[in-house]
Amino acid sequence: MSDTTYLIAFITVSAVATFATRIIPFLFFERHTEHPLIKHLGRYLPAAVMALLATVFLQRSADWSATVPGLDAILAGALVVIVHLWRRNALLSIAAGTAAYMLIRQTGILESGVVG
């Protein structure tokens, strides 16, 4: 297999595998849209998924080797929550938290001397 053939095959297989994960529920559960269990999941699953995505990615964005482990992400995350409860403007909350996180990361004010 030449390099280009391999690359094209690779991209095709990856695209099919990714698309499969997204379309399978629509193929197998389409007829059950009105089933109370599907409605139950439709109502509560998004909130649960959002909370778990927030938790996992917050943990991954944290510097656990800093003087106070994880403080960078905790501060920025708390700022998002506070600004959002205060003004309830999604863009403002996201901008404030992201700016705070970038500032902390780029100035390195919370890092330990060892990691520097």
Binding site: M50, L52, A54, F57, A76, I94, T98
Partner: peptide
């Protein structure tokens, strides 16, 4: 890239307010 983390946090709060039920949020966390 923290923008995406912040987005998930904001959307969790919005979901919480829309549902009026904290159970799924705590379950997710």
């Amino acid at each position: 890239e923290f923008a995406l983390v912040a987005l998930f946090i904001v959307l969790t709060i919005e979901q919480l307010k829309a549902l009026g039920d904290a159970f799924p949020v705590w379950t997710g966390a």
